[in-house]
């Protein structure tokens, strides 16, 4: 503990240490080291550093701190996995993109009842099931479902569209099973929809489902961007408050 306190004392700004360093080290030798003392010292260092930093240094420093904090959180938070299934829609004489949209949105492939039954079947979100209502759980599940349009080529008579259905969950096997179930829901809606229309939309799953870890890929970039944005805003706030405090002290 004493070593930690001595190390923290070295982190004060050099100009401050030139003036107070010797007597401060003497105080640390006299005072009984404690966890509370370490925390107090840490805040003291931060406060003193911030008072000597220029606005630009404060904003840049806090932005970097934001990125580092978000990177640390990424590893501390439980891992999340994303299962992906790619589906090709072929529609004779019709727009495949319209067909895909019709199946997923207009025909309500992912309606509340279907999603609620998947939550029950697969026992999803065990920690939240006791404290959250079914509606809230369904909303949570919807936030874990992502649908992306994929680029495809079309022939003269048959229009094709492809999309990817992605489901994020903490267990990779469950994520895969649920993603396959979601594709199953789209297939069921296609069969039901075929009864009420003359043309036939052919749906095929392009590849076996792929599962990747949540923070491998663009999400970690988004996470880092979010951290730097929060740090940047905190930097602006701190410099604004420092200026306001200086102005108030000057007036008084």
């Amino acid at each position: 503990m004493n070593q930690v306190m001595k190390l923290l004392a070295r982190m004060y700004p050099s100009s401050w240490r030139e003036r107070y360093g010797t007597e401060f080290d003497a105080l640390l030798e006299d005072a009984k080291p404690s966890a509370r003392g370490v925390i107090d010292l840490l805040f003291g260092v931060l406060k003193m550093q911030l008072t000597t930093w220029t606005p630009v240094k404060t904003i840049v420093g806090l932005s970097i701190l934001g990125v580092l904090t978000s990177a640390a959180l990424l590893f501390v938070l439980p891992a999340q996995f994303a299962a992906r299934d790619r589906v090709l829609v072929a529609a004779d004489g019709e727009s495949a993109a319209v067909a895909a949209k019709s199946l997923i949105i207009d025909r309500g492939a992912f309606d509340r009842q279907s999603l609620a039954s998947i939550i029950q079947e697969r026992r999803l979100y065990p920690r939240d099931r006791d404290r959250l209502s079914q509606d809230v759980l369904v909303d949570k599940m919807r936030r874990n479902i992502n649908i992306f349009a994929l680029p495809t080529s079309s022939t003269s008579n048959t229009d094709t569209a492809a999309f990817e259905v992605q489901f994020e969950y903490s267990d990779p096997d469950v994520a895969k099973q649920v993603d396959e179930r979601l594709i199953g829901l789209i297939m069921e809606r296609n069969v039901q929809a075929a009864v009420s229309r003359k043309s036939h939309w052919k749906l095929s799953v392009l590849d076996p489902p792929a599962v990747t870890q949540w923070h491998e890929g663009p999400r970690s970039v988004r996470f880092a961007c979010f951290g730097s944005l929060v740090g940047f805003l905190a930097g602006l706030l701190v410099t604004g408050l420092a200026k306001w405090r200086t102005a108030t002290n000057t007036h008084s």
Partner: peptide, 9 residues
């Protein structure tokens, strides 16, 4: 704490 004391000093 030492940080608070010397911040105030």
């Amino acid at each position: 704490g030492p940080g608070t004391l010397y911040g105030a000093i």
